[in-house]
Design a protein around this nucleic acid. Sequence first.
DNA 1: GATTGAGGTAATCGAATGATTACTTAAAAA
DNA 2: TTTTTAAGTAATCATTCGATTACCTCAATC
Lengths: 212, 212
Amino acid sequence: MPAEERRELILQAATAVFSERGYAGSTTDQVARAAGISQPYVVRMFGTKENLFLEALDRALGKLQDNFRYVIADFDAGRLSEQAAALDPSGGASRQERLRPILGAAYADLIQDRGILLILMQSFLAGHEPVIGARAREGFLAIYRLLREEAGMDEDSAQDFLAHGMLMNTLISMRLPELYGQDATADELLECTLRTKLDVVLAASKRDGVRP
Amino acid sequence: MPAEERRELILQAATAVFSERGYAGSTTDQVARAAGISQPYVVRMFGTKENLFLEALDRALGKLQDNFRYVIADFDAGRLSEQAAALDPSGGASRQERLRPILGAAYADLIQDRGILLILMQSFLAGHEPVIGARAREGFLAIYRLLREEAGMDEDSAQDFLAHGMLMNTLISMRLPELYGQDATADELLECTLRTKLDVVLAASKRDGVRP
DNA sequence: GATTGAGGTAATCGAATGATTACTTAAAAA
DNA sequence: TTTTTAAGTAATCATTCGATTACCTCAATC
């Protein structure tokens, strides 16, 4: 297999593993197994575990930004998907007011690849790591800037958007969806937070998950 | 030193260490050093690292619940602190509407002991751990129930409260406050999220932090 | 047909880490 | 005074893990 292709495969595997177990809790061998290759090859291709995490993190961040920008560009060009049209408020809402639910749905759609959002979340919780922590801060601020400058949100809207994103990440990371139907409180909280996205989330949480 | 006292000291040290580096990223030796004793004694007193984490987690969860219940009881008894009175909306607000900012302030006050909130957050991100993950889910749901049943919040308010709590946790864990004054975007986000609490947060982030 | 280089792996090494064992010390009890 | 017990530690062990080394294989090139 050509190196480029293998690289992407390893990054996918790394994203899945790191997103489940965090940076410190993952091993290069787990990533190698998930990618179907040997551990030394992973190390040779990425140099160090830290660098592997950084590349997986950059990839996830890039996908999130691409997704948001794609949605914004579509909106500004008047290309409303069926889903977006359904979310569009009827009254005389501002651009940011109309964009917000669409971006929210785009974010929730990313849950389908659980790893993308969770490796970001794991990086945020690794603030004490000198290199990874710094990159995580940069990434978070880049998303905030995107919301403020490109989506045109005001301070409070951007904050609120991020807050609910963090809650979603937390619930997914906690594996609360796996409790669905078993705990009335959990059901209520999930339904409240994820609304129309519950089916997607439940499917994803069953499909995904790197088994030990 | 009597065992009970030593126990509490170790739990404080464990909370600080685990909250910075997560469960997998922390070592019993780091906890021992932070508590000023030897590593074998930590293990002997708590059996396993996992059990140590669980006890530190329970302690943090208990403190959070105690804090919230204390605030609610005070409010219901008409004992409004100066801070609480300042936050009280003037119009004809409902109990939950009046309670919310007070509970928010109580939560933000807990930042002063950075470890309390961050070890909870770390536990949420360890959903894949069989024992710790289960305890984290229980803890999260217990807090949600407290907000719904004891503070009387409706679904959306409780969700919103938790969402902003998760955002605060994330920013603190990311060590964004340490960037304060160095990055305009970070400043704006922090000010937006933490409002009047910024001074507390900044002070806490300087005071705390377990150095390697 | 020999050579080269890309795409890999098996074997292994050194450091880190959770846990165990065997002690030590000093105050209280007998 | 002797014994017991609580509060600790030094030394060490068995694993695990990231990284390194030395090799293998096979298609393309010379």
